[in-house]
């Protein structure tokens, strides 16, 4: 299962064992089914920091189960005007 991941505003993959370590824009292959919370754990980004998550442009909760070709965008708390 292939997914595309974009992390913003300083977020990066923090898991040293992964190829995407240190990156904020990458393709990723999931070997097993997992939801967003499990995926965040996998890339070492805390659920507190990952405040806003879009999958394919729509807000999704941490319980959302990832599917093939999903595009995930993750933001920490941000604001502006």
């Amino acid at each position: 299962m292939n997914i595309t991941v974009r992390l913003f505003a300083g977020l990066r993959c923090e898991n040293k064992r992964l190829e995407c370590f240190g990156k904020n824009d990458f393709e990723h292959v999931l070997s097993q089914e997992m939801n967003l919370e499990e995926f965040l754990n996998c890339i070492g980004v805390s659920v507190q920091v990952a405040k806003i998550i879009f999958v394919n442009g729509l807000f999704k909760p941490l319980t959302y189960v990832l599917r093939d070709a999903d595009e995930i965008s993750i933001f920490p708390p941000i604001g502006g005007g």
């Binding site: 974009r6 913003f8 505003a9 806003i52 879009f54 442009g57 965008s73 933001f75 941000i78 604001g79 502006g80 005007g81």
Partner: peptide
């Protein structure tokens, strides 16, 4: 910083 989030 909002450019990317509104784009997404």
């Amino acid at each position: 910083v909002l450019i990317n989030i509104l784009n997404e």
